[in-house]
Amino acid sequence: MTWYMGIDIGSAFSKGMIVKDTEPVCFHILRSGINYRTTANLIRQELLSRVNLSQNDISDTVATGSGANNVDFAGRKVSDIICTARGMNSLYPQVRTIIDAAGQSTKLILIDSHGRVTSFVVSEKCAAGSGWFIEVIANVLRVDLNEFSQLSRLSKNPVAFSTSCAVFGESEAISRVAEGIPKEDIAAGVNKTTANKISSLSKKISLEEPCTTCGGGALNTGLVQAIELELKIKLLLPPQPQTLSCLGAAVIARTSSS
C-alpha cells in the first residue's frame, strides 16, 4: 500500500486529503486563519492520526493554493487550477468544464479526458464574483453560509444589486435591510449577481459540457441554481466540492511517484 497527501492552503479554508493507492481515504478542512504554516501542520496531524500513520509512511505530498509556500513538508507545489482539474478528472473523467467558486476568486477551467487543463480564466483581483462577496453579505444578514443558501432558495423576488463590488455591495445590502426587504430576497439577489459575474467570465472561454462546480461556492445551492439558470446548463455536483484541489494534489503526488 502506498499513501499520498494533498494539501490546499486557500485564502479562506485549507483542505487536506490522504489517498491510498488510487482511493481517497480521509480529508480534513480548517479555516486558514492568519498563520498558514500552523494550519498546514494541524491538517497534516489530523489526517495522519485518522489513518494512524506517520509522515514517513506518506510517499509524497503536493501542496497547492495561495498559501502553498507555507507547506514545508510538501515535496513540491502545483497550481490549484491544475490540481482542481486532476481532482475532478479522477472523480468524473467525462467533465470538460469546471466552475471553481473559491473564496478569493472564481475560475473557469477547461479540461480534456486526461484531466489536463486546456484553457482557463480567473476573475479579476477585486472580490466581485468570489466567495468573499457572499460571505460579506451573509455577515450583513447575520446568517451563516448554510442558512444563506437555504434562504436564497426561498426567494420569489430577488433584489437587483447595482454592483458586484463587495465593498459597494455591502453598503447596498445594508440599505436593503433598512428598507425592510426580506433576507431571502437579498440573499437570492447576491447569488444572482455572483452568477452574472461568472456568466460574464464565461464569455472569455468556450464552455464545454458536461460542466461541474466546486470550491466553497458549490456548497451554496442557491448560487449553484443561479449559475444553472444564468448559463442554461446543468451542473454536476461532487460530494465534497471544497476538496477537489487537495484531492488533485494527492493524485499528482501519486502520478509523479509512479
Partner: peptide, 19 residues
C-alpha cells in the same frame, strides 16, 4: 502583482510543464 495574477502565471506554467 495580484494573487489572481500569480495564480494565472503559476497555472499557465504548470499547464505547459507538470501536466
Amino acid at each position: 502583482v495580484s494573487e489572481q495574477d500569480k495564480t494565472r502565471i503559476q497555472a499557465f506554467i504548470d499547464m505547459l510543464g507538470v501536466q
